[in-house]
Design a protein around this nucleic acid. Structure first.
Lengths: 340, 340
DNA sequence: GTGAAAGCGCTAACAT
DNA sequence: ATGTTAGCGCTTTCAC
């Protein structure tokens, strides 16, 4: 109830000056203090249940010991694991996580980041595909360490922790090819997003690599990473190329839209036309048939981003490496041997 | 790059003392300052891009302008909307949100909350079912305003924003009864969680209210809110009561487990046995058949919790009201007329 | 209506 | 090895 115990209380209790108590409590300066003074201070701190005031400390040291994460859409289940990974890795170093949600159609998405900056976060993790605007300038001019996660942008000289979409799409295409599929189509995501574009490019590259035909007629772009756009795109694709026996979708929602389109055309998913998704979202294993999907280690991605951020916050010459995490393929009923 | 502009800079620029600048910048004290002095200060602040240092201010005012939210499992898609609602409502009042994840099987779940308390959050939203331990004492002794969200506990004198499970289960049972179902079973959630218990009690109450038999033989408890425990419980239930034509599951995952069990026994979901879920998670509409489910306004729940918290942080006599938000029923293919 | 001065709790440069 | 002192940037008495 009453006042919280301060360093002064601890110092008085241990019979030393506050500065000595401060030094004794700090790992880095402890060595300079007499061993049994340290013991006395620690004991007093412990007994009084002392916890340093983060604001006072931060004001002095110019660090808040918080990082911020900017999420484009917290309601997307994708970000849960990322947040969990970030929070957990930051926590190990005593950092806390401030969360900011940039809803779609947010009036001023930048204000969200600005708020974080004004909060004096020590670092920032951006899960938003950052566009090339003044915002990045602001951030970099403030010398706030930044790590991108999941999506990246063109222009940047920023560290990014990403899924290896090239490898992931490769898993899907190779799996289909091994099942005998030759006429394989791609329901692509919006090419304005790095994930959409990269998966598309990877698809083309793998098709070529495996000697399969990819002339552009077997690709259709969806407007948005959602079920309905996936349905629309898949329909177009199948009407143009009725010979396709397999479709690689750029994410799970597009794949589920593709399910619908396949059924609409009187075909069976997995038997007549194989489908693969991307992300392995919760519940896609329970669809009928279960969706074969590329699983991206999102939690690990978040943790890795946090670790990179911690490193760069400490270092004066931050590394800008791009890390690609290796995905796995979860094979289920939506893919099967090519119909003969 | 260089130093950030401080209040001192603004004051100098406006030709006034820092204290005057402070008063001019603060909504509450502005009235006491000469109108054109205010204008001069505001202009200077604007021109210099001044943003107050939250740590300095917080140290002085003893407020951090942050709230914390404790989530039992960020990876559960349920919490995305809650977080979004909280963050958005807090943001409107200038508060930021610190997130803390208590994974299941976390070695020391309390340490998570303790961290938040040491961070001096101004308020706390708990989405965890708080057990009756010393922790709550700590929190209440610190006079930190708390709001529970989604789950509640027995003992407490704490405000809580919850779904109206009684009404929600009522929607499901009445819907089934209207379809002609009489022999209705319940796959219950863990009775140790408030949601599990409340939905169970609501089920019994509604069955009685509608004059349907609920003798306990038509209820089976699942160990955990997951698909497999749901499967196990549903199987047991159907073996004991082969006459059931409908099953109300305590959440969507249990309902999907029930799907499996129904199929295992050679029956068809929706045609032979109707199933309802609870929560209306993403993708359950795309299951085959689409799951009829009780939709809880989680985003609104989060927003409401944040608003209550803001109120209680301001007030010296916090309200401890419990708010129940009204759910809706999303009707899909998993429920149909009783087989004749 | 405005300025002067103190102080929130801590750390760090300087002195001893 | 410890104490003294100053100050991070702000708000808020208290004077005038």
């Amino acid at each position: 109830m009453g006042q919280r115990t301060t360093l002064k209380d601890v110092a008085r209790e241990a019979g030393v000056h506050t500065s000595t108590a401060s030094r004794a409590l700090n790992d880095l300066t402890r060595s300079v203090v007499n061993a049994d003074t340290v013991a006395r201070v620690l004991e007093a701190a412990d007994r009084l249940g002392y916890a340093p005031h983060p604001l006072a400390r931060g004001l002095r040291t110019n660090q808040t010991m918080t990082a911020g994460i900017v999420i484009p859409d917290v309601e997307n289940p994708l970000f849960g694991p990322i947040i969990a990974g970030v929070e957990s890795a930051l926590g190990e170093d005593g950092y806390s996580l401030l969360i900011a949600n940039t809803e779609r159609h947010h009036p001023d998405p930048d204000s969200v980041i600005r708020t974080l900056v004004e909060r004096r976060v020590d670092g920032l993790i951006l899960a938003t595909a950052t566009r090339d605007d003044a915002l990045l300038e602001l951030l970099m001019s403030r010398d706030i360490p930044i790590v991108l996660v999941n999506r990246t942008t063109e222009r940047v000289d920023l560290p990014a922790i990403l899924g290896d979409d090239y490898a992931g799409i490769g898993l899907a295409v190779e799996h289909l090819e091994a099942l005998g599929h030759v006429a394989i189509g791609h329901v692509a995501g919006p090419q304005s997003l790095s994930t959409g574009r990269e998966r598309h490019d990877a698809f083309m590259a793998w098709m070529n690599k495996l000697g399969l035909v990819a002339d552009g007629s077997n690709v259709e772009e969806a407007d948005w990473f959602q079920v309905d756009p996936g349905y629309v795109a898949a329909r177009k694709l199948m009407q143009r190329r009725p010979d396709l026996t397999a479709i690689v979708a750029a994410n799970d929602l597009l794949a589920l839209g593709t399910y619908k389109a396949i059924r609409d055309m009187g075909q069976r998913v997995g038997d007549d036309i194989s489908v693969t998704g991307y992300n392995d979202m919760p519940l896609v294993d329970l669809m009928e048939p279960g969706l074969t999907s590329v699983r991206v280690p999102y939690r690990e991605m978040g943790a890795e981003a946090a670790r990179r951020l911690l490193l760069n916050m400490r270092s004066s010459s931050p590394e800008v490496t791009e890390v690609r995490l290796t995905p796995k393929l979860a094979i289920r009923g939506s893919t099967g041997l090519v119909a003969t």
